[in-house]
């Protein structure tokens, strides 16, 4: 039952107030450690040289754009099955953050690719899938924006999110298939066959840092969304002329 208690918006806001400073602290620490290791302790790749350092932001960003979609999918189930308003708030505020991380993954991927492939963009299976994911994020955000009623918009977006979640593996599979058909053999794969511990540790710490960053931003965005809905409800109350009715049935038997 504890979960449901925190799912109450007011209590949730209080919880955010308590948790947020800690999260921010850990996040900063993780970034400090991760960045230090990424630049000073991690070795150069024998093949890619220093460009391998882009991996320490590219891979966590790519991991987060998947995790963010997972969070949105779970929230969407919450919206549709339990009809809880906080689930909807969570899904809505995760979308822009997810889009931003997806954008990061794409940009770093293409900046990493330029020295490797000699071009900023290749229609590599993974980059292509991430691009499709970005379009889906942006589409979802647009859907939310175009509907005035947040409850209705939330339900529509939840359905689309879940259809997208079903479709993402299919898209990934098709893009992989398509890629093997058309792929030139010379493309350098981004991940080496085995990852050395000196590379793995900074990567893991950066992944943790990014994950913490996501939760910090997500909680803050959720808080904003709750406030926004309060403002909306209060404005509506300010504008409403008619008050909600409590109806009394007065039966007047005719005949």
């Amino acid at each position: 039952m504890a979960f449901w208690d925190y799912a109450n918006p007011t209590r949730f806001l209080r919880l955010v107030q308590v948790v947020l400073p800690w999260l921010i602290g850990f996040c900063v620490l993780a970034f400090a450690a991760g960045l230090y290791m990424a630049f000073f302790t991690a070795p150069e790749d024998y093949q890619q040289g220093n460009t391998v350092r882009i991996m320490y932001i590219h891979v966590p960003a790519a991991w987060l754009c998947m995790m963010c979609y997972t969070v949105m999918s779970i929230s969407s189930i919450g919206t549709l099955v339990w009809k809880h308003p906080l689930a909807d708030v969570s899904a809505k505020s995760a979308a822009p953050i997810g889009a931003a991380f997806t954008f990061m993954a794409l940009v770093t991927g293409s900046l990493w690719g330029k020295p490797m492939w000699g071009t900023y963009w290749v229609w590599d299976a993974r980059l292509t899938s991430v691009l499709v994911l970005l379009i889906m994020y942006l589409g979802l955000m647009t859907l939310w924006r175009t509907m005035d009623d947040p409850i209705k918009a939330g339900k529509s977006a939840a359905i689309l999110t879940l259809v997208g979640a079903l479709n993402l593996p299919i898209i990934k599979f098709s893009v992989d298939w398509w890629n093997t058909l058309h792929q030139p053999a010379s493309v350098v794969r981004m991940d080496g066959p085995t990852i050395h511990a000196d590379i793995l540790w900074p990567l893991l710490i950066m992944a943790v840092a990014f994950t913490l960053l996501f939760f910090v931003l997500h909680l803050m965005a959720m808080r904003n969304e709750i406030l926004r809905r309060r403002v909306r409800a209060l404005r509506m109350r300010a504008a409403s002329v008619s008050r909600p009715g409590t109806a009394a049935a007065t039966a007047q038997p005719a005949e």
Binding site: R243, P244, G245, A247, A249, A251, A254
Partner: peptide, 14 residues
């Protein structure tokens, strides 16, 4: 109508 019952909807106390 033959047999009517009425339900009057009224604004509640704000």
């Amino acid at each position: 109508l033959d047999r009517i019952e009425t339900l009057h909807l009224q604004a509640a106390d704000p």
